[in-house]
């Protein structure tokens, strides 16, 4: 079982104010909030990539800043929003980059990550020839190939069609079911409501709600944070958001 990932009193300029959160492995945690609420900042701070003004990001009770970078990299996999791949390398090479924190390629692990994200037929193609959805899968496979305890992904579902969204979510949920911690920034509140085990809502750099989706994404919270009047329709696990 993986260790707990936590943020204590994390503060960074205007972007994050006194954020306290302790995340458990084996779950999918969604970070939600309006544009500019500090979602990406919280995620990259949890990945140990931000120099906080005050507060600590901690893994298993140890400050991330005190972990050697390579060890931190082996334990926490991070997928940035940008999706940048500067050179037109093959999908297999992209996935193999995930092994860098371990000091080199382990073909079986790379192949397993390729298979896990259904990239077998695309493995030898150049990354530029892939569709948006295939490319997102390849980039996530890179994170999987590092075999991290924690997978932190910044809007991995953005700009994907529904089928690709669900397939990527399925892969992330499977990892969580196997004991990894999964934290994703999500814009689509219905996806968060239906698929996350826990939702952290951010508003202007502060944590506005934290709990199971039904509580953290209640209509009261949505009104307060997003300033919209909406209601949920449907059964738990298959809910849709509509204007009230």
């Amino acid at each position: 079982m993986s260790a707990q990932l936590a943020m204590q009193h994390g503060t960074l300029g205007e972007r994050l104010t006194d954020a306290n959160v302790a995340l458990s492995p084996g779950q999918v945690t969604a970070i939600c909030g309006p544009n500019g609420a500090g979602k990406s900042t919280l995620l990259s701070a949890l990945a140990g990539l931000e120099h906080l003004d005050s507060g600590l990001a901690m893994l298993e009770g140890r400050a991330l800043a005190d972990l050697p970078p390579k060890e931190r990299a082996r334990r926490i996999g991070y997928l940035p929003q940008s999706g940048e791949v500067a050179w037109d390398i093959a999908v297999r090479s992209v996935v193999a980059l995930g092994r860098l924190p371990h000091g080199g390629a382990a073909d079986d692990v790379v192949n397993a990550a390729i298979t896990e994200l259904a990239l077998d037929d695309l493995a030898d193609r150049a990354i530029s020839t892939l569709s948006g959805g295939e490319r997102a899968r390849a980039l996530l496979a890179r994170v999987f190939a590092g075999e991290p305890e924690w997978i932190l992904a910044d809007e991995p579902l953005a700009a994907l069609d529904l089928a690709h969204q669900l397939s990527l979510l399925g892969s992330l949920k499977a990892r969580a079911a196997n004991g990894s911690g999964v934290v994703i920034v999500l814009h689509d509140l219905a996806l968060a409501m239906n698929h996350a085990d826990r939702v952290v809502v951010l508003d202007q750099g502060r944590i506005a709600a934290d709990g199971v989706p039904a509580d953290a994404l209640s209509v009261d919270i949505l009104r307060r944070v997003w300033n919209v009047d909406v209601r949920w329709l449907g059964q738990p696990g298959a809910q849709a958001l509509v204007l009230a």
Binding site: W87, L100, G146
Partner: peptide, 18 residues
């Protein structure tokens, strides 16, 4: 190797321990 990691951008490279 660090340059390889940088292929995926600055943030991804740092997350990989660069």
């Amino acid at each position: 190797r660090d340059l390889d990691a940088l292929t995926l951008g600055d943030a991804a490279a740092r997350s990989m321990g660069v």
